[in-house]
């Protein structure tokens, strides 16, 4: 039983100075310790008794290597996992290369929360609203796991069954925006439906990336849905219907059907899975419909 709040029941806080030190601490304490970025999600979990208050918090505040946003090799924007959501929103590099990511960030919680909450924390919640946007962008991550640094696609990391349970997310790499008009139109979009206009958990989030080329075909399409407690999911059936093909009304309806069929949405007292799947299908199809008549000059 978790005893409520006597002073001696508050967690100890460790402030490691290195990534390796943090990871070793976590590995030695196992489930008795929890990494803490901004701590905003943890506090709601304790408050709602979804997670117990741990024996030890491993606060990542002193890890300078988890901070900063800059352009890395290959033109990717490299974002330290401890960057706050508001730091990301204010960053000109990210704004230029991933506007749909910025849109996702702007719609998370409220300004005061975004001052504390970190990009890494949102990713590591496994159901954060930033995940569909990052997966659509084909983002990569570097993590410290099994005693070493690894770099791999975010998609692969999220879906690795042999993941080190103590792995520490260090950096997120956002691919550069594909350049302009010579390659047609960007299909990038992000949309969130919540229970009110702002400061709301998501019911449904969808993100799309890809190109609609001058010759009228879809290239590099990636469609991701998430929201509520659902893990963000690539909607491959819809992607397959679109990739290399043209946009037509019939194809959009088929894409809608495919999304409704494939998306494993969450369900709770406030919205059913069927509703969420329908909304995801509508949001994607409406987005594509808006550009279906696009003709290259």
């Amino acid at each position: 039983m978790v005893l409520p709040g006597l002073p001696e029941k508050l967690p100890h806080v460790a402030l490691p100075r290195g990534v390796q030190e943090a990871w070793q601490l976590k590995r030695s304490l196992g489930e008795r310790a929890v990494y803490s970025g901004g701590g905003t999600l943890l506090r709601t979990q304790w408050e709602n008794q979804v997670q117990p208050v741990p024996f030890q918090l491993i606060a990542l505040d002193r890890l300078k290597m988890l901070r900063g946003i800059h352009v890395s090799d290959g033109g990717m924007v490299e974002v330290g996992a401890m960057s706050t959501l508001n730091e990301c929103i204010a960053d000109p590099l990210l704004t230029r290369s991933a506007p749909q990511l910025i849109q996702a960030l702007r719609q998370i919680a409220a300004p005061a929360v975004r001052n504390l909450a970190t990009l890494g924390g949102n990713v590591c919640s496994w159901s954060g609203d930033v995940l569909p946007a990052l997966l659509a962008l084909d983002a990569e991550v570097s993590v410290y796991a099994e005693g070493k640094q690894l770099r791999l696609p975010l998609d692969a990391w999220l879906n690795t069954s042999t993941r080190d349970p103590h792995a520490l997310l260090c950096r997120i790499y956002v691919p550069p925006a594909a350049d302009g008009a010579e390659d047609g139109l960007s299909l990038a979009m992000y949309a969130k439906v919540g229970r009110r206009q702002a400061f709301t958990a998501s019911l449904v989030t969808v993100a799309v990336a890809g190109r609609f080329t001058k010759n009228g075909t879809v290239r590099g399409i990636r469609i991701v849905a998430g929201g509520g407690g659902a893990a963000a999911q690539r909607l491959t059936a819809a992607e397959n219907l679109l990739e290399g093909g043209q946009l037509s009304k019939e194809r959009l309806f088929a894409v809608s059907d495919a999304i409704r069929n494939q998306y494993q949405a969450a369900s709770d007292a406030f919205a059913g899975a069927e509703y969420r799947a329908e909304a995801a299908a509508n949001l994607v199809a409406a987005h594509l419909w808006q550009i279906k008549d696009f003709k290259a000059p």
Binding site: L203, L252, S256, A279, N282, A285, W289
Partner: peptide
């Protein structure tokens, strides 16, 4: 309820 107002696009 949003469920009561959502409509299939087709």
């Amino acid at each position: 309820r949003r469920e009561d107002l959502i409509m299939r696009l087709a």
